[in-house]
Design a protein around this nucleic acid. Structure first.
Length: 260
DNA sequence: AGTACCACCTGACGGC
DNA sequence: TGCCGTCAGGTGGTAC
């Protein structure tokens, strides 16, 4: 489920495979994923161009071309990228295929189609139009703590709200709260300054660790919750029982002993 | 502003 | 075997 660390991993993957290669053609085959631009126009925009650089903001990946607009990718829950040689089989659920002049291809794959492919004129404008908050790994500590001070709801909702800080989804919200020892249902107005500070630290630490492990939960440190998302599982810190609840209509896992 | 719920979308899985 | 409800979780919309 691509959240910030996963999208960052995809960004690096695209960087290492697909920059500075002539695009022979693009094949956009799914109008339900391509938003705000026709399939034809997307294809003609990419044809003959090269990917020049990439930028990530929250869960969005921007790819600049050597001329013209930016390619914007969002991966929803099931999106990914695959770079492969033309004679290898194309992945199932490929929604956009890019053919490079070197005989390799880049596929935007998205089984469930929750996600989007679009074009944008510039990144700042796109972020503003979407109402996205600062990226969770770039936000200043004061801005983050002020955001928590200003809100009224549950802390987990605030962490997941892309208009507050961008990039945190369901799994990493739970992990950050677990590492900061804060209950997901805790109201913002009841957080202490110390807890806000600890949340900021945990957010940065968790996201960086996850990036280092390319989002592979099974490789996370032993004290992480992400690979034990199951009601009744053993808490990796205290050995108690993990509880499952619902916040924002999302399944939420936490340790009632460790998190207060 | 916050909450609650539905819709979008597909596949895996468990119950009957 | 096979049908069916439920769940997975990112986002957007609507009603309260």
């Amino acid at each position: 489920m691509p959240e910030l660390p996963d999208v960052e991993t995809l960004r690096r993957y695209l960087d290492s495979t697909s920059l500075h290669r002539r695009i022979q053609s693009a094949d956009a085959r799914d109008a339900r994923v391509v938003k705000g631009v026709s399939l034809k126009r997307l294809e003609s925009t990419l044809r003959g161009r090269e990917f020049e650089s990439t930028h990530r903001h929250g869960k969005f990946l921007f790819v600049t071309l050597d001329r013209g607009p930016l390619l914007v990718l969002h991966f929803g829950m099931t999106g990914e990228l695959a770079y492969f040689k033309h004679d290898q089989g194309e992945p199932a659920h490929t929604r956009l295929r890019i053919r490079f002049a070197n005989g390799y291809r880049l596929a935007y794959v998205n089984r469930r189609r929750l996600g989007r492919v679009s074009l944008a004129e510039n990144i700042e404008e796109f972020i503003r139009d979407e109402g996205l908050g600062p990226d969770a790994l770039s936000v200043e500590r004061d801005a983050f703590e002020d955001m928590l001070k200003g809100g009224r709801g549950k802390i987990k909702s605030a962490l997941m709200n892309q208009n507050g800080v961008a990039g945190i989804g369901n799994v990493y919200a739970d992990e950050i709260l677990f590492q900061a020892s804060v209950r997901p249902g805790k109201r913002l107005e009841k957080l202490t300054g110390k807890a806000r500070r600890e949340l900021f630290r945990a957010m940065r630490r968790v996201l960086k660790v996850a990036i280092r492990h390319r989002g592979h939960r099974e490789e996370f440190p032993k004290t992480y919750l992400s690979d034990h998302r199951e009601a009744g599982a053993e808490c990796p810190k205290c050995g108690g029982r993990i509880r499952k609840g619902t916040i924002n209509g999302r399944s939420t896992y936490y340790c009632p002993q460790c998190q207060t």
